[in-house]
Amino acid sequence: MQFSAREDIEAPIQSVFDMVSDFERFERMAMRRGIDVRRLGGGTAVTAGTEWNTEFKLRGKPRQMSVVMTDFDRPSQMRFDAASKGITGFTTVDFLALSPRRTRLSVEMSLAAKSLPARLLLQSMKLGQSRFRKQFQVRLSEFARELEQRHLHGG
Rank of each mutant, 00 (worst) to 15 (best):
M1T: 08
Q2W: 04
F3P: 12
F3E: 06
S4P: 09
D8R: 12
E10Q: 13
P12V: 07
D18I: 01
D18G: 11
V20P: 02
V20T: 09
S21E: 04
D22S: 05
F26C: 00
E27F: 04
M29K: 12
A30C: 06
G34M: 01
I35R: 10
D36F: 07
V37G: 04
R38M: 08
R38Q: 14
R38W: 00
G41T: 02
G41Q: 05
G42Q: 05
T44A: 12
T44F: 08
A45S: 12
V46T: 05
T47F: 08
T50R: 02
W52H: 03
N53P: 03
T54W: 08
T54F: 09
T54I: 06
E55D: 10
F56R: 13
K61I: 10
P62H: 10
Q64K: 14
V68C: 10
V68T: 15
M69G: 03
M69R: 08
D71L: 13
P75H: 02
S76I: 07
Q77D: 06
M78I: 07
M78C: 11
M78Q: 09
A82E: 06
A83M: 10
A83K: 14
F90S: 15
T91M: 13
V93I: 13
D94S: 13
L96T: 15
L98T: 03
S99L: 03
R102T: 13
R102P: 03
R104P: 01
L105A: 04
L105N: 06
S106D: 11
A112M: 05
K114H: 09
L116W: 14
R119C: 03
L122P: 01
L122W: 04
Q123S: 15
M125A: 15
L127Q: 11
Q129A: 14
S130Y: 09
F132L: 15
Q135S: 15
F136L: 00
F136S: 01
F136D: 00
Q137V: 10
Q137N: 12
V138F: 06
E142K: 11
F143C: 00
F143T: 07
F143V: 00
A144L: 02
Q149K: 14
R150D: 07
R150G: 05
R150C: 09
R150E: 06
H151W: 13
H151K: 11
G155H: 15
